[in-house]
Design a protein around this nucleic acid. Structure first.
Lengths: 241, 241
DNA sequence: TTGCCTTATATGCTCAATGCATCTAACTAA
DNA sequence: TTAGTTAGATGCATTGAGCATATAAGGCAA
């Protein structure tokens, strides 16, 4: 029996199928640290552990739509940009049954991050601890606001790690960094975003020049208020070029 | 009913599940052009069109294992490095039923590419035409060895495009380029790989310095043979640094 | 044997981008 | 008015890339 014949006679409906789910990595910045929104699991399996917001993909639902649905249901957010990260399909990743999960990443500005925390009281803002530097990779850990290590459910430490990896990789050649910021922001805020994501300190003049030369920043003519020192110019992100 | 209650009562086995498949983008270099291995579809749907080698994911099979299985069954290859690309889950991507497909990318050296073509006579080496430059994105087209445009099945033009996009993005900061080359190769061959993938011409002295400074190239002391001009030094790829 | 042709390899120059130190500007608070 | 703090600008050295060009090493033909 050749492979062609095999496939011709293959009736996938006759075979058991894995369940398909989505998991969302919702990242924001709190106190200059990368922070993710986690949910405490109340039910078996992994009850008491912390997991990413997730849900199953309906048979008549595009995967992206399932991710947006979870974003809305579990975080009360709409219209955020979601980027597909990676698909996790190890056999034992869920003890109940075979579940394949497509992970998505969303970057939230402070306003959306706080909004989600308000709308869903079961969400927790967990600081992400990255025990490796650069793009080495490996699992990460999550800390509660009090600094306690949170036990993570399933393979969610790996999913979070993949999110950090992707984010670091894209940060300096794409415009993803702006997703963390409000409509108007200062160059210092933008640098804080980069420093938090990359977990380094950056050279200020060099960073300024690089960003300004990129043509993505439109000065608003406005300045920040409420500082006890020289107020910084407010910029707006403009796509273009 | 809260989301928590909903999930607690949710029995995924009670819902119909999408079928899960893998599709493989097998890329090589022929005559300085990016080339993919395609299969002519004999059956409905899309009979007569050309598609990527693919297969379903078994309920007791990790996704990576399913991809390796397809690699072995459809291309007669083993032990190649496979990288997960993206998961395609549009509702209408397959007219038979809902199929979600996890796409994988493998880069083949000339030897493995030819081996696959010999082992499976139904495979075709299709030249990939990329109608956009840089990392702009958009679907690509495939040409037969005679230069005729091949009609592609399903969303496989998009999957191929994603492969090119990923490849171009990773080429100059990672070691993926070496995957196209044999054990020993010249700097000119390495440059040819980069020029084919990026679809540009590169500056030779600059390219040489960049590659040599990277510490990935170990001179073998040997030189290529059979040229009617000065033979080039043969290098070997060594990881680390 | 001797040029000649072709490609490999090396080198020098210029320019652009970056790291770094430092200078000036603008605001508050005392 | 002055001290303190951060924003923003500028000069200099280093690095890396683009580019032209020089030299090296093979085959080949006269």
């Amino acid at each position: 029996m050749t492979e062609v014949e095999f496939l011709a006679e293959y009736d996938p409906a006759a075979y058991e199928r894995p369940a398909l789910a989505v998991d969302l990595v919702l990242l924001g910045l709190r106190d200059g640290r990368l922070t993710a929104l986690l949910l405490k699991r109340e039910q078996f399996p992994h009850a008491g552990r912390w997991g990413l917001p997730g849900g199953f993909v309906g048979i008549d639902q595009p995967i992206d739509a399932a991710a947006l649905h979870v974003l809305s249901e579990k975080a009360g957010l709409a219209g955020m940009h979601l980027e597909q990260l990676y698909t996790f399909g190890a056999l034992d990743r869920d003890p109940r049954m075979r579940i394949v999960s497509v992970a998505y990443l969303a970057l939230l500005p402070e306003s959306a991050f706080s909004e989600a925390l308000e709308r869903s009281s079961s969400l927790l803002a967990a600081t992400i601890e990255v025990p490796w530097s650069g793009e080495a990779g490996g699992p990460v850990s999550a800390l509660s606001p009090k600094g306690e290590t949170l036990p993570l459910a399933f393979d969610h430490a790996d999913i979070l790690a993949m999110a950090i990896l992707r984010l670091r990789g894209k940060l300096d050649y794409s415009d993803v960094g702006f997703a963390f910021l409000p409509e108007q922001f200062t160059l210092r805020q933008l640098q804080d975003v980069h420093e938090a994501v990359l977990d380094t300190t950056l050279n200020k003049p060099a960073f300024r020049r690089r960003m300004l030369d990129r043509g993505w920043l439109a000065p608003t003519g406005l300045r920040e208020a409420g500082t006890s020192f020289r107020p910084a110019e407010l910029y707006r992100f403009q796509r273009s070029r």
